[in-house]
């Protein structure tokens, strides 16, 4: 139904076991069986991938190890240890982790409620449809929506003031760490619901019945079977949510301007005006981001493969 979840599905499949294992064995075997028609069909795709995905990224990786004159250096990488950049990475990691963990927990709770909570069927389909929309509703407009809700003149802020005489802005600032986290949850929770729902559906009714005939209570079933079976999916989705938040910039930029210096915003400013006064350091910053998102995605792929193997 939805894009994000379906792409996530592919990610789990052949990809995770495929490229490393198979390509490693005999990478060019397919060349011997190629026909001209195949080349015509696949060449533009491969060319596009090289020019607009692989090479720009590799260019940055190489750039991270070059000084202004193009000589090899570790200087840029070492400069990532500077206080401003470390602070950026730290706030980015905190926001991503908080929105991923909360998004995963809340998303799981909602998914369990609509799938296993015996709510009317139309609620489930409505939630799934809405999740498809909300997980794609990010960026600038999302920031506007939360400003209109929790900003200084936002509906909820005003309601709290007029109804309870309570000034929300004293304890909660939309332009802060928690403000950004709460906003990110708007696309993190739906993404979690979309990805975890099939896994919850995959928990067979017979497992809980078998556990019951063997004397287990509902709690014991969840502790020994239900949760362990879901665990790889939870862990995998958690990494995916983390990567998702870590790379996001538009929402934060529109919400906080540059008052909350997360890594993508710092990088944005660096690309705009070389605020770090070192183009190589910009590349190193990018490399840092690539490493972190790639790591999170690798965890996702590996863990998903394990989960799939179980559920055959």
């Amino acid at each position: 139904m939805n894009s994000v979840s379906s792409v996530a599905d592919t990610a789990a499949g052949p990809v995770s076991t495929g490229p490393v294992a198979r390509v490693g064995g005999n990478p060019f075997r397919f060349l011997t069986t190629l026909r001209p028609g195949d080349i015509l069909a696949i060449a533009p795709f491969i060319l596009f991938a090289l020019l607009f995905l692989v090479m720009p990224t590799l260019g940055l990786v190489v750039g991270a190890f070059q000084d202004a004159n193009g000589n090899f250096t570790f200087d840029n990488i070492l400069q990532l240890g500077g206080p401003q950049i470390v602070a950026s990475f730290w706030i980015s990691i905190r926001v991503s982790a908080a929105s991923a963990v909360l998004g995963a927990l809340i998303g799981l709770a909602i998914a369990m409620a609509i799938i296993r909570g015996r709510l009317p069927e139309f609620i489930r389909s409505s939630v799934m449809t809405f999740s498809g929309v909300a997980s794609n509703f990010a960026g600038i407009p999302l920031a506007f929506a939360f400003l209109a809700t929790l900003g200084r003149l936002g509906l909820v802020t005003v309601l709290f003031k007029t109804l309870f005489g309570f000034d929300l802005t004293r304890s909660f600032n939309i332009l802060s760490f928690w403000g950004l986290t709460v906003t990110y949850l708007y696309f993190q929770i739906p993404l979690m619901i979309l990805i975890i729902a099939p896994a919850i559906d995959g928990l067979k009714k017979e497992w809980s019945e078998a556990a019951a005939t063997l004397g287990a209570t509902r709690f014991q079933f969840w502790r020994h079977v239900g949760f362990p079976v879901l665990w790889p999916n939870l862990l995998g989705t958690l990494s995916l949510l983390f990567a998702n938040a870590f790379g996001a910039i538009a929402t934060a930029y529109a919400l906080t301007g540059s008052s909350l210096n997360i890594v993508p915003i710092l990088l944005y400013a660096q690309i705009r005006g070389d605020v770090l006064h070192n183009p190589g350091l910009g590349a190193a910053l990018a490399l840092g981001m690539i490493v972190i998102t790639a790591l999170a995605n690798v965890i996702y792929l590996v863990v998903r493969t394990r989960a799939e193997r179980w559920l055959k």
Binding site: K204, E206, W207, E209, A210, A211, A212, T213, L214, G215, A216, T217, H224, V225, P228, V229, W310, L311
Partner: peptide, 21 residues
């Protein structure tokens, strides 16, 4: 009695083995 209090063993059509064990 709840199913888990009946001391009755059951085998299902689709095996229903716990996949994580």
């Amino acid at each position: 009695l709840q199913p888990n209090q009946r001391k009755i063993g059951m085998v299902f059509q689709a095996y229903a083995l716990f996949p994580n064990m």
